[in-house]
């Protein structure tokens, strides 16, 4: 028996929108402490890790650990039928090959049930090692999205360089080059507007902008984004989901031949 009631149902809608273009099918792993998802994109260059802890749910019941394979495109179609203010409940029964999404309007005058077929998914489970990162940049998520979008109109890849001067995003393409530098800025009215650079050692890495732009679909989930980099390790782009968990995207760097 599985029953999860999320008053802020829009959160689940936003989570799905942030990952559905990267991952087609994925196993959702439910346990008593919350649910998680880990999946690589089809080209095996990026990895998505999602965690939503049980504390964030108004009601959370999971009698035994269970894994449900879902097509994220289909799940997104169903969740789009929920209103932004709706309460969303996920229900499942042991051994069933379906999952039910229930949408309740805030005034309880409309209640909808959507039953979705589950699927068997073979997925390799990867251990994500704890790493000491050379540099961790925390910045407004909207600013990061703007930079990725702007640079993608010039080039295909972004070089992210962190020095004690700041963080530099650079690209080059047929029409020219672009460099955007952000300096550490903690003297802001709201903490979420700050750019904070923690640097142990300077680092410079190259990534495909196509993936970075895909990650920024998670922008509505969080006012800030954290970018953690170490040479030869996948970059971690993390959007924290207030009080509940996170969506993390890992992307392999582009290497010189």
């Amino acid at each position: 028996m599985l029953e999860l009631r999320l008053v802020q149902g829009s959160l689940l809608k936003k989570v799905l929108e942030s990952i559905k273009d990267l991952v087609n099918d994925a196993n959702f792993d439910f346990s008593s402490s919350g649910f998680s998802l880990q999946s690589m994109d089809s080209s095996h260059v990026a990895l998505v890790a999602l965690l939503l802890k049980s504390e964030g749910f108004e009601h959370y019941r999971c009698d035994r650990n269970t894994s449900m394979g879902m097509n994220l495109g289909n799940m997104s179609k169903m969740l789009k039928c929920a209103g932004n203010d709706d309460i969303i409940t996920i229900k499942g029964d042991d051994g069933s090959d379906t999952v039910t999404f229930m949408f309740e309007s805030p005034t309880q005058d409309k209640i909808a049930d959507f039953e979705m077929k589950l699927m068997d998914i073979d997925s390799e489970h990867l251990g994500i090692p704890e790493a000491e990162y050379h540099a961790i940049v925390k910045m407004p998520s909207a600013e990061f999205a703007r930079i990725c979008k702007d640079l993608a109109s010039i080039g295909d890849t972004v070089v992210i360089s962190v020095t004690k001067e700041g963080v530099k995003f650079s690209t080059r393409g047929d029409i020219g080059t672009a460099n955007i530098v952000l300096r550490q800025n903690t003297t802001v009215d709201k903490p979420e507007d700050a750019t904070v650079i923690e640097m142990n050692e300077p680092v410079s890495m190259t990534f495909a902008l196509r993936y970075m732009n895909s990650f920024t679909k998670a922008t509505p989930l969080s006012n800030t984004v954290t970018i953690s980099m170490s040479p030869d390790l996948p970059v971690v782009v993390e959007y924290k989901i207030a009080e509940m968990g996170y969506v993390r995207f890992y992307l392999a760097p582009k290497m010189e031949e």
């Binding site: 990895l47 390799e124 251990g127 890992y250 760097p253 582009k254 290497m255």
Partner: peptide, 14 residues
């Protein structure tokens, strides 16, 4: 340039 396979950065679990 080539994209480094992301698996190199992770441990494959059974």
């Amino acid at each position: 340039s080539r994209i480094q396979h992301i698996l190199e950065g992770f441990y494959l679990l059974d």
